[in-house]
Structure formats: C-alpha cells, structure tokens
Simulated scan of single mutants.
Amino acid sequence: MSYEYRSGLGWDSHRTASGRALILGGVTIPSEFGLDGHSDADILLHAITDALLGAAALGDIGMHFSDTDPRWKGAESMQFLLHAKSLLAEKGFELVHLDTTVILEKPKLKDFRTAIRENIAKHLGLSLELVSVKFKTAEKVGPVGEGRSAEAQAVVTVRRKVPEYAGV
C-alpha cells in the first residue's frame, strides 16, 4: 500500500478584548479578557482549520466562513474545524499528526494543555499522542508581548492511499 503525504500550515491572530471569553481549542480559559472576532475567535481552531484546508489545497478559512457573513457571527469555531475535516475525508485524506503553538503573554496556559489536547483529539478522531499543543510567550515584544493580541500556529500531516503501480 502506498500513501501520498501532504503537510498544511495554519496561522491566526486576533486582538485581545475585554468582555469576551478566551476560548482555545474549544476550551474556555478563565481570563480577564478574550479575543475579538466575528466568531468565537478561537485562534487555535482557526489555525488548525487553515492547516487542514491548506494540506488539501482547499483554500483558507475565510473562503469557507466569511467574517462578513452574519451566519457566522458568534459561531463556535469547532464547526469550522469539523467542516475542514469533512472536506479532507471527501478527498480521501486522513489526519496523521497535528502540532500547534499558541503565543499569548497571559494568562499562563499550562494547566489547560490536557483539556485542550483531549478536546481537539476527540473532535478530530485522533489518539491523544497525535495532538501536540505548545504554549509560548512573545517575551513582551510586539503586539502579542504587549498583551494586545494573541497568535496560534498549526502544522498538520495528512495522507491518502494511492493505487499501487501495476506495471505494463
């Protein structure tokens, strides 16, 4: 059996905003601020969604869920992720590995790593060992370091079966 392997890269950034929930990987994090956005502004799920779409050359999250469409106002980002997963499955791809990084000055996120990993793994149908979630600060440099924004990055590896060459 032969496989075609592909990688996808995703990135997202949102401004911080008081009066909003901080949601990462579908998990609400206790915080004095959240992230501003048309949907729930879950930068981690947005980055993963873009990585999945990119791996299959299916565009980006904005092509599928416009931030000007009122249907997506306040929407849970998990539905974006599940849509991307479904599109990949239609193309015959399966997710092999996911590696992510959240860049946020505060709050500290280490106590939420397991819950975030478990939630993402559950929704993507992956074992926990295939989902990596890392947390970094920006060392007080730039908009993230100054607490004005947050970022997330994701890299995925996907594969699909390809027919064996039968020869002539």
Rank of each mutant, 00 (worst) to 15 (best):
K85N: 10
K85T: 01
L87S: 02
L87E: 12
L88C: 14
L88M: 10
E90D: 12
K91A: 12
G92L: 13
F93S: 03
F93G: 04
F93T: 09
L95P: 05
L95R: 08
V96Y: 13
V96N: 05
V96M: 14
H97E: 14
H97W: 08
L98H: 05
L98T: 08
D99L: 09
T100H: 13
T100N: 09
T101N: 04
V102W: 01
I103V: 15
I103S: 06
I103T: 13
L104R: 08
L104S: 03
E105L: 00
P107Q: 08
K108I: 10
K108M: 07
L109C: 11
L109Q: 10
K110I: 04
D111T: 12
T114Y: 10
T114G: 00
T114H: 10
A115E: 05
A115S: 15
I116R: 01
R117E: 13
R117W: 01
E118M: 09
N119I: 04
I120G: 02
I120V: 11
A121C: 03
K122C: 08
K122L: 13
K122F: 11
H123Y: 09
H123C: 03
L124I: 01
G125H: 03
G125Q: 06
L126H: 03
S127K: 13
L128W: 02
L128M: 07
L128R: 08
E129D: 13
E129Y: 00
L130K: 15
V131G: 01
S132F: 11
K134V: 15
K134R: 12
F135V: 04
F135I: 06
F135S: 00
F135K: 03
K136T: 01
T137W: 03
A138M: 08
A138T: 00
E139R: 00
E139M: 09
K140A: 14
V141R: 14
G142F: 05
P143N: 13
V144Y: 06
G145V: 09
G145Q: 07
S149E: 10
A150F: 09
E151N: 15
E151P: 07
A152F: 04
Q153K: 08
Q153T: 11
A154G: 08
A154Q: 05
V155D: 01
V155W: 15
V156E: 12
V156H: 07
T157L: 14
R159Q: 14
R160K: 06
V162K: 15
P163L: 12
P163W: 05
E164Y: 10
E164D: 10
E164N: 12
